[in-house]
């Protein structure tokens, strides 16, 4: 299949990249060849085959409902953000 500029634009939007004209062109070319490669899967017959999402035998793995101290404090975490105020993360206004 050939990937149109429109598709690249859509994928960039889904991926939240602001791609330059140049980047969209070169990435578009790469994506097209990659999608062509993975599309060979069409020829494989998977009728009546169940999908496998995880290669892990266990199920019902969960924990108790008890509060326990965490490995990092609020201060440790907020120290990682660029801007904070009043113990919150500061970002440009959300419209």
């Amino acid at each position: 299949m050939d990937t149109t500029d429109k598709q690249i634009e859509h994928l960039a939007k889904l991926s939240d990249f602001s791609l330059s004209e140049k980047d969209s062109k070169s990435l578009g070319k790469d994506l097209e060849s990659i999608i062509n490669y993975i599309s060979q899967l069409d020829e494989l017959d998977t009728k009546d085959v169940e999908p496998t999402y995880q290669v892990f035998e266990m199920e019902n793995v969960w924990r108790d409902d008890e509060i326990i101290p965490q490995e990092a404090s609020r201060e440790d975490l907020l120290a990682l953000t660029k801007e904070q105020e009043d113990n919150q993360i500061k970002i440009p206004k959300v419209l």
Binding site: Q7, I8, L11, A12, L14, S15, F17, L19, D23, S26, L27, D30, L31, I34, I35, I38
Partner: peptide
């Protein structure tokens, strides 16, 4: 670029 390629393929 390779991160972007894989992210975009994944979203595709």
């Amino acid at each position: 670029d390779e991160n972007k390629r894989r992210i975009m393929i994944g979203n595709f």
